[in-house]
Design a protein around this nucleic acid. Structure first.
Lengths: 340, 340
DNA sequence: CTGAAAGCGCTTACAG
DNA sequence: CTGAAAGCGCTTACAG
């Protein structure tokens, strides 16, 4: 099927391309009669403007780029869900890329998106991203950038986050209030800000409740996986029999721990209480169901997109735009892994 | 930052735009010296071709569209994972849209992708899609189309599927061989081909093993949700106490059933055996772990993309292309919900 | 080996 | 209210 162009419509109607274009773009200086005729023929021929040409002229692609560590992940797929749904409603399409937790890949993807000339970029950093030149490059190219969840404090742009420190505090406090006296923390990797913050929250809660902080009760995940949860639980059980509570960096890790204790017949929460983080769907269906912290993925995606579109709009109108950081609330979800 | 153009490079080097372009696109009729000079300056100025202009000239966007029912879904997010990873390696970016099981939205999204002039479209149909005019429109526009998983037999294009009928047969046979005599089927919606096929496989297995088929043991999901699994399990338990096996259309539904039986203290698999479908990660961590059918999402995405790129390539070279249907193998995964 | 010119399909400042 | 013209930044057939 040959695509219809403005030119064909103009010829058919015996008017100029200019006038056809104006009629379609709601210019006020077109007679109602002409406009009606154009609209009618456009409908009839099923004309769709060639977006390549429109992009070239307007220097806009009406497309935004999204980079996340991985998509097969309850939290991130929820974020993606929110972003593509809201973007579509606002007339934007979304190109999604996964960094697979690789700084190198992330940098390459940024280059790709820049050369695709997306109108803006949303991203959550890989756990291994240390150098931030690629983010600065985005900003240098005047491409609006919004970071969410895994952010860097060193980059000046809009951000959407939760307060991981207070959420980590709340999780630990909940264990303490459930009667735990010796609480281990299976933490995330050393690099990402949010796993640092959750750890700091844990530490602060111990201090506030006069429990000793013990470095040997901190276990550090590399991949934040089910297996790590399982293996660290085993280690905790064999090396620290008196631990009576675990705060896991993520539900997946917490579920790994639950699996281990179920296997060896340790009673949860009577002998050991466990709390995760993120509220994955999975946590509701295992037994015992896993207590956790609600991490609002959908809201996060929605807000990140909203900030990005605002910045795109401001830039287009050459208006000043002040970067904003939105901190979304979290709360403890009590389930059977911490109380009965 | 002002973007560098071919023109600027040409002026700087005192040569023509044509020559610069040729040097960058590996034309053979450029002297090595000129080429080297161009490449050096390009590197130095960090020149990136304006993809809008390239698209307009070449009539290619190097972008493909992907429409799936929903992304927050273990099976589909695995497919997306495969597609965007492989596409990136081949120089294509992916625009993802979710139909949310709405035929209307699906049609709108097809229009969007057509007017974006993507180079090809990959899709899995919504459960509620009955009218197929939008798919025919894609084909009329000469946009390569590959359907996967939820396909329609009425559309002539490449497809990647599993044999749902034989997989349904295998699941049911596994229950029979585990000793089940009266097997219920919690099936998917009436419309999609794959839930029809799984149902037919179930029916055939009963016949082959001389078990009576009983329509009152068929329960039809609308949303294919955890809750439906839970509620149908309750119904089965209260109305058909002698049912000793359940084949659930999907792991999520199977897990809902497991949750109900766990709650009321019915022993799985001793009193009732349950098998799901798809092999979601979740099925390995619940207790008892859920037997299921392995549905190779990653492979499916990979193959669908491969077929699409082949078709795009053939079209570009104006070569004949024969549509192909790839049927991926599945197998039963035995876990504790069907044997001990 | 090099380059002038046409053209992809639009939008928009400007003239009438 | 209408339209001729320029131009967005490339690629490519063609001439030399």
């Amino acid at each position: 099927m040959k695509e219809v162009t403005l030119k064909e419509i103009a010829i058919e109607l015996g008017i100029s391309i200019t006038t056809v274009s104006k009629a379609l773009n709601n210019y006020s200086d077109v007679s109602p009669k002409t406009k009606a005729a154009v609209l009618k023929l456009v409908e009839q021929l099923n004309y769709k403007p060639n977006s390549f040409a429109v992009n070239l002229r307007t220097k806009e692609s009406k497309t935004i780029g999204l980079i996340i560590p991985e998509i097969v992940h309850h939290f991130f797929s929820n974020i993606v869900n929110a972003i593509i749904e809201k973007a579509e409603k606002k007339g934007y399409l979304v190109i999604i890329l996964q960094s697979n937790e690789s700084e190198k890949l992330e940098k390459k993807q940024i280059d790709l998106l820049i050369s695709k000339r997306v109108d803006g970029i949303l991203m959550s950093l890989s756990n291994n991203t240390k150098n931030l030149d690629h983010l600065r490059k985005v900003i240098d190219h005047n491409i609006p950038l919004v970071l969410f969840d895994k952010i860097s404090k060193l980059i000046d742009c809009s951000k959407v986050i939760i307060n991981d420190r207070s959420a980590g505090y709340d999780a630990t406090e909940h264990l303490i209030k459930s009667g735990c006296k010796k609480i281990a923390h299976i933490r995330g990797p050393l690099n990402p800000q949010n796993s640092i913050d959750r750890f700091l929250g844990y530490k602060k809660a111990l201090t506030d409740y006069n429990l000793p902080f013990n470095n040997s009760l901190i276990f550090t995940c590399e991949k934040v996986s089910f297996e790590e949860g399982y293996n660290f639980a085993k280690k905790i059980y064999t090396e620290h029999k008196d631990v009576d509570g675990i705060f896991a960096i993520t539900d997946l890790v917490g579920i790994g721990a639950v699996a281990y204790f179920n296997e060896v017949g340790i009673k949860i929460p009577q002998q050991i209480a466990i709390i995760g983080f993120s509220n994955w769907f999975m946590s509701t269906v295992i037994s015992p169901s896993l207590s956790t912290i609600d991490q609002p993925g959908f809201e996060m995606g929605k807000n990140a997109l909203k900030l990005l579109l605002k910045e795109i709009k401001a830039q287009k109108k050459e208006r000043e735009f002040k970067y904003k950081t939105i901190v979304l609330p979290t709360h403890v979800i009590k389930r059977n892994s911490t109380s009965n």
